[in-house]
């Protein structure tokens, strides 16, 4: 009786204590039946990447409202790739200006969710684009 559960890490990189969004999403993922590893605020990209590997997650969701996403998001992705985990998808959310989307996508960020995105559509994206234990 084998079941495949989606494992998601929700993390807040950098100096940003606004975690309401991250918590709402963690809760929403729980309700969608995912296993959520929530690591809280003020994480370095190194901590997030190391945690993602130890926890064997399928996807890392980063929340950033400080404006430092252009550095922080790609750095997490880079560290994962460097450690041989290019299969772990990285998605981001928060206050992200549209003109930054392309740069983030080019750096390997799979999707960006900005304010106003419904929880349902985020869960739907996860269910469509992320396979547990590929």
């Amino acid at each position: 009786m084998s079941v495949k559960k989606l494992r998601v890490m929700v993390a807040k990189p950098g100096l940003d204590g606004h975690d309401r969004g991250a918590r709402v999403l963690a809760r929403c993922f729980r309700d969608a039946g995912f296993e959520v590893i929530y690591t809280g605020c003020h994480q370095t990209p190194e901590q997030i990447a190391a945690g993602a590997l130890q926890e064997d997650v399928d996807v890392v969701g980063l929340s950033c409202l400080s404006g430092a996403h252009r550095y922080l998001f790609p750095e997490v992705k880079r560290l994962l790739v460097e450690r041989g985990a290019d299969d772990i998808q990285v998605v981001g959310g928060g206050i992200i200006p549209e003109q930054d989307f392309q740069a983030l996508r080019d750096a390997g960020i799979a999707e960006i969710f900005t304010p106003g995105t419904t929880l349902d559509s985020i869960v739907e994206w996860f269910n469509t684009h992320v396979q547990p234990r590929r």
């Binding site: 729980r30 929530y38 690591t39 901590q47 945690g51």
Partner: peptide, 30 residues
């Protein structure tokens, strides 16, 4: 959760300072 089968695993929050230490392996289980 008995209803959705999902879980929030939050024990790592208190142990994050060891996250980069290769001599510590933290694994959360639901």
């Amino acid at each position: 959760s008995p209803f959705t089968g999902g879980a929030i695993l939050g024990d790592r929050i208190r142990m994050q300072r060891h996250a980069e230490d290769p001599g510590v392996f933290v694994r959360s289980l639901a």
